[in-house]
Amino acid sequence: MTSRVILISPAMNAALREARFDDGCPLEEGGAAQARSAARLLPRAGRALVAPTERCRQTASALGLDAGEAPELAGLDVGRWRGRTLAEVSAAEPEAVALWLADPAAAPHDGESVRELGRRIADWLDEAARFSGRTVAVVEPDVVRAATVRVLGAPEPAFWRIDVAPLSAVEFSGRAGRWNVALGRPLHLAATAESAW
């Protein structure tokens, strides 16, 4: 039995543009329009899921997905840093940010560590491997990073070395606990190609 998981990052919004920890702001109209134009490119899925953030919900809706909310796919809980830009936090708490970026077990924001996120997503991937067919999920970029690190067996600090563009897809396929990764192209750019998949 082969399982396929396609993780799609949300379209552009002000928080992504400003490097601000998510604060629930909606998609920008341009991002929503790109998602609507990419909707026809998505392959059929046995199930569709969405992380519990406004930008993920709006992206899933714009993509035409009838997605069930999946709290286990929530992005990294950054605690008291939520709503602040990385520049603001770095200026106010430079040692805390340096620790957070250097130590995957650190959570100086009183939220969730990168290690804890990785474990949570690894558990979800184990569950997803039991689903025969394709799962499409719209998730935060940090969830895509955590899944990629786990699937590749990369060291935890590699989390910070993975860039995830808005409205892009990564596909994982596997069986018996062994996953492969297919790095995709941005969905809105694939709209002009013959086939995205």
Score class of each variant (00 low, 15 high):
residue 168 S to N: 09
residue 50 V to R: 01
residue 19 A to P: 01
residue 48 A to W: 00
residue 120 R to V: 12
residue 14 A to F: 10
residue 142 D to H: 06
residue 3 S to Q: 10
residue 179 W to L: 08
residue 197 W to D: 11
residue 135 T to E: 07
residue 92 A to E: 14
residue 141 P to W: 04
residue 30 G to K: 06
residue 47 R to S: 10
residue 64 G to N: 05
residue 176 A to K: 09
residue 62 A to L: 08
residue 125 L to W: 11
residue 12 M to G: 00
residue 17 R to E: 12
residue 77 D to Y: 01
residue 56 C to R: 00
residue 42 L to K: 06
residue 176 A to N: 14
residue 29 E to D: 13
residue 152 L to Y: 13
residue 46 G to D: 15
residue 70 A to D: 09
residue 144 V to R: 05
residue 98 A to Y: 02
residue 112 E to G: 11
residue 105 A to D: 13
residue 138 V to N: 01
residue 25 C to A: 13
residue 59 T to C: 03
residue 106 A to H: 08
residue 84 R to I: 02
residue 192 T to R: 14
residue 36 R to T: 00
residue 98 A to R: 14
residue 168 S to F: 05
residue 136 V to W: 02
residue 74 A to Q: 10
residue 34 Q to M: 10
residue 85 T to G: 07
residue 145 R to W: 03
residue 131 F to P: 00
residue 86 L to E: 14
residue 134 R to V: 10
residue 90 S to E: 13
residue 68 G to L: 02
residue 16 L to E: 03
residue 174 G to L: 14
residue 100 W to G: 03
residue 29 E to Q: 14
residue 164 V to W: 06
residue 141 P to H: 06
residue 166 P to R: 10
residue 136 V to E: 00
residue 195 S to P: 07
residue 121 I to A: 11
residue 34 Q to L: 05
residue 137 A to I: 01
residue 145 R to A: 04
residue 21 F to S: 01
residue 13 N to I: 02
residue 124 W to H: 05
residue 56 C to P: 08
residue 37 S to C: 10
residue 197 W to I: 14
residue 155 P to K: 05
residue 11 A to E: 03
residue 3 S to M: 09
residue 156 E to R: 14
residue 63 L to F: 00
residue 94 P to G: 03
residue 163 D to F: 15
residue 93 E to V: 02
residue 98 A to M: 07
residue 36 R to M: 04
residue 35 A to C: 12
residue 5 V to T: 05
residue 139 V to L: 08
residue 75 G to A: 07
residue 131 F to N: 03
residue 110 D to C: 05
residue 44 R to S: 14
residue 32 A to E: 15
residue 174 G to P: 07
residue 140 E to S: 10
residue 6 I to S: 04
residue 25 C to N: 10
residue 101 L to C: 07
residue 70 A to H: 03
residue 96 A to G: 02
residue 100 W to A: 10
